[in-house]
Design a protein around this nucleic acid. Sequence first.
DNA 1: CTGTTAGCGCCTTCAT
DNA 2: ATGAAGGCGCTAACAG
Lengths: 337, 337
Amino acid sequence: VAATIRDVARLAGVGIGTVSRVINNSPLVSEPTRQRVMWAIEELAFVPNQTARKLSLGKTLTISVITPFFTRPAFIERLRGIEQTLAKSAYEMTLYNVESVARRDECLREVPLRERTDGIIILSLSPNDADLPYLESVKVPIVLIDAQHAALTRFTRILIDDVAGGRAAVNHLIELGHRQIAYISDPLETPFNFTSSRDRFTGYRQALQQAGIAFRPEYHLQGEHGRAPAHRMAKQLLSAANPPSAIFAASDTQALGVLEAARESGLRVPQDLSVIGYDDIEISEYLGITTMRQQLYESGLRGVELLLASLADPSLAPVCEYLPVELVVRGTTAACP
Amino acid sequence: VAATIRDVARLAGVGIGTVSRVINNSPLVSEPTRQRVMWAIEELAFVPNQTARKLSLGKTLTISVITPFFTRPAFIERLRGIEQTLAKSAYEMTLYNVESVARRDECLREVPLRERTDGIIILSLSPNDADLPYLESVKVPIVLIDAQHAALTRFTRILIDDVAGGRAAVNHLIELGHRQIAYISDPLETPFNFTSSRDRFTGYRQALQQAGIAFRPEYHLQGEHGRAPAHRMAKQLLSAANPPSAIFAASDTQALGVLEAARESGLRVPQDLSVIGYDDIEISEYLGITTMRQQLYESGLRGVELLLASLADPSLAPVCEYLPVELVVRGTTAACP
DNA sequence: CTGTTAGCGCCTTCAT
DNA sequence: ATGAAGGCGCTAACAG
């Protein structure tokens, strides 16, 4: 039913090459001819078939974005930065949501090969050694946001220094006089190979060490991501023999669980217990949670900018940019009683 | 650089048709031949070029999803239902996020025409009369979720009865003895043509009328979506001459703002003020907010199912399905003092 | 069962 | 400046 370039050519009484030139704004068409072709296009309501165009051009005008758990606030915010930046370009966004390891492997290994995309943005899924060959073999540019690997210098990366962030969070507690500081996080080792909890843990230990506080293994609990598991871990921590006076949660979502546990344990926050989260998601402002603010939106925005740049000029060398973190002090942290 | 079907055929010593059959699981290939082809595919790390495939098939294997404000929890949840269902199919998802009226018009009118998609899912953006011709002219199936229009019977729709939902929410308050019930919502008329706030308002008025309570215009405040504007509206309501004893917020996000205002006004919830929200987003459970639960995830899931069905059998007549709403009573509503 | 061939719709030389 | 022709990689119909 849809008109093709041939229909237009016939109606305008020209060759199909000429129509193609008009479509692509080639200067090699005389004004009268162009007029006639334009008229025919209008007349037939002709819209170039993108698929055919891609095949011929060898381009797809599509960017693939691979993200884990896109319902989590921190990922949403990054995606938002990506989407809004991409919307201003000629590219569209195909989204792959990863919520299982099988899907992770599938996405990391197959998506790049399908030739359905001109570029790839990967969020938080750090490639492992087995993934590397796949990524290395890809010919389209790849941008990694919040993903790390020693051998990743071939790709452009946007990072936020989680070690420094963890250190800053814990330093804040130390400056308030706390010395019994616990850390509640996702599992440090996950099949998804997330690095943030691990890096923040490193920062946590660094801060303790610098302050001359011994690390106590029983003060570090790890479990599934989410409010409920964090809730359980906090309960366990608070009901133990030597409860901490402050808890650093690896995300604001988990901080919510900690606050819940404190409430149930009859502890006042921040008088009896200090709590600091991470991310500064929207609800944290509402609840007055002290947290580490990450530039999530900006990381998505910047990732797209760099991807588009290397699409425009493939000779561009990959870069690695760091975005700052910022301590936001609100009402859930106070001096140690 | 990438291997093509021809390379595989040559290496396996067969014709390209046979390779194509193997790729597409055609039964018309002998086992030994299939083995040999599989081996060649493996050997060359061959992945079929999707673009060429699409062109040949006349399909795009892509579904376009148009959603407004995809960072809002209610939309995320629908998207999640869509993504997870689509991930099980051969289709991919291209996402269009709408946060301005210009973008809304662009998406509603141009996306369908680009032939980059086999089907379209539109969330919450009810077409207006000017949009209709565009949608009507599309040849791919369209599914509308949470979008209404008198002339939309040509399309499959998934709806949740917001009038009934609004009525149920207010009836709950009435049964608790409240008679001074306010309603805080988004603007009833928006350029995006959202219908939910409007329909819930209708339900609100119906419930009042059935209970013989006169509608008081000063009890209905409308403003930008979000916690902060709802906060302001609630403040205004609570500091007026004749404050309500209960507030129905058009979304849980707005209910948060109301709770904030109550706190600042020194009102205890639910003793002094009852608050009911809408959506049952995750945080509502955490904060114990009474609300109307919508089957958001399910609406996305069902929308995809119906879209895939009509893709498989284009002769299917469009249907209109309603999903139920459910009252979830928690801690922010109580008997009128 | 399998190889061959004709498109799918467009872009891009190559002549003219 | 323009028309004709070849090709992008794959599918499907057609012979064998």
